[in-house]
Each structure stands twice: as structure tokens, then as C-alpha cells.
Computed example of a mutant assay.
Amino acid sequence: MTNSAIQTIMNHRSIRKFKDQPLTEAQIKTIVDAAQMASTSSYVMGYTIIGVTDEKIKEQLTAISGQPYVQNNGHLFVFCGDLHRVEQLGTTEQQAAMEESLASSEQFIVMTVDATLAAQNAAIAAEDLGLGICFLGSLRNDIHRVSELLQLPERVVPLFGLAVGYPNHEPEQKPRLPFEVVYHENKYQPFEQQLPFIKQFDAQLQKYYEKRKQNRRTDNWSNQIIRKFSNPIRMDVTPFLHHKNLNKK
């Protein structure tokens, strides 16, 4: 018997070109309902999902991200880590008692993990409906401005976007790191044991880049990652989190 959930997951690829066809209200509801069924730490459900339908806001988010599919999609979801709701449940005295916990790195991790688990459920649900998706970390290019545009209160952070829609292209599936690199049994395996598999993967990925239909280039994973981490980006995120009274302790 074919497991449709596993098949959906294994067929994943990022879609960056969508047809000019909006999602229905029923599709949006199904995707959000699926997101809410994700696991959550201590039942906090520390996230809020904002659906962006205002074209003026989408235009400004597109300018921030530099990616046209932030605007040209069937629906744009923005996943936010949210501890504002938790704080507002309490009286003034209770809020004071919660302050140290709310500002801690632990609770920042909790809300980020909660939001990410929910988003992955949403992505799988969308793909199971025959739609395509693309995650959008590029919204953090100007995290302050995104927060202003979405009118996010204290302790709410825009983590990433999720563009969803009807695919208008069929990109090749990009390879992933070998099993032996990402799965370690009982203890972390020395890098020297991972390296032969990484070299094999570099060769595989170089062939992929050279043969794919669009944006062909000569490159591999190791060089790509070294370049990425040699060029620090979004260094304003940490002070932004502190401004939101998050991740401070």
C-alpha cells in the first residue's frame, strides 16, 4: 500500500513560479487547520499565522525580500513566533512573574520550534492538495520593517513566510545530504568520518547544477556553504529580538 503522506514528502521541491490563481477560503482553512495539528511544546502554541492579502503590503514585502513570488502566488502566509498572547493572559502581577521566562532563550526556542513545526505541517498539507510551496526566510532582510507592516506587538517576531499556490513550472528536485552525514547513532560522529560522504555529495550536486534546466553553474555544496557563512547577513536580527524583549537571558 502506498503511503500518500510519505510520497508527498518525498516529492517536495520549492516552487518559485505560481499561476495567477488565488487559493480558496476552504484551502486556506485546511492548510491552517493542518498547521495547528502540529506538535507543540507544553501546549504553548507559541505562533501566529498572518495571511497577507493586501497587495500594497505584499508589494512592500516583495521589495524587502527581493523575490517576486512573495507577491505572485496563490496566498502568502507569514509565520510569527508569538509570546505576546501568553503574556497578555496574566494580570500585571502575573506578567511580572513571567517576565524572566518570557525573555529567555529557552522560550524563544520554544516559540520558534512551535512555529516551524506548524509551518511544515502547512507545507505538507498544501502539497497534498496539489499546490506548491516556497519558504521565505528573505522576509528577515529587514525584520524591523516587516514587523511594522504587519503591526506586530512586543514579543511577536516574523520568522519566515510561506508562499503557496498552483505551480507554473516543474523544477528538478535538488539532492540532499547523504543519510550517513545527517544521522549519527548514539553519539556525534567525527567530521573525518562524514567527509567522504560530503565529497560524494559535492560531486553529485555539481552534476545537478551543470545539468539542470535553469541557472546552470559550476558549484558544489561545500563551496556554497563556505561562501554563505563568510558573508554575514541580517545582523540586525539579534538587536531586534532584544527590542521585542525576547532571547535576552
Rank of each mutant, 00 (worst) to 15 (best):
A203M: 03
N215M: 11
I133Q: 03
G165C: 02
T2R: 10
T2Q: 12
V52P: 12
I9K: 02
Q173F: 00
T112L: 04
T53H: 15
N121P: 00
S138F: 08
K29T: 15
E185M: 07
E185P: 12
A5G: 00
R234C: 08
Y43T: 12
L139Q: 02
M98N: 06
P153H: 05
Q95M: 08
S39L: 08
L205V: 12
H169W: 13
D219F: 08
P153M: 04
P68S: 14
Q94R: 08
L205D: 11
L177Y: 02
P153R: 03
N72M: 10
Q204P: 01
T112A: 09
D54P: 10
D33H: 11
V237C: 02
E127S: 06
P158S: 04
E172R: 05
V237L: 11
P178Q: 01
P171I: 05
E192M: 06
S222T: 15
F179M: 13
E55L: 06
Q21N: 12
K213D: 14
L162S: 10
E59D: 14
E154D: 14
L102K: 02
A163Q: 03
I226P: 00
E106V: 09
F191N: 00
S101Y: 14
T112S: 13
G132W: 07
V113T: 08
E100L: 05
L246A: 05
H75D: 02
A38W: 01
I9C: 02
Q204R: 09
R85Q: 15
A34W: 09
N220A: 07
D128T: 15
P158Y: 03
V86E: 13
Q95G: 06
V157A: 01
A122W: 06
Q193W: 08
Q60L: 05
A125V: 05
A125S: 10
K207N: 13
N3M: 03
M1I: 11
A125W: 07
F135K: 00
R145K: 15
K187V: 12
R216Q: 15
T40S: 14
D236E: 14
I6Y: 05
P153C: 07
T8M: 00
V156S: 04
E99P: 00
S14R: 02
Y47F: 14
G137P: 00
V44C: 14
D128Y: 12
S41E: 02
T91K: 01
G51K: 13
D219E: 15
I225T: 14
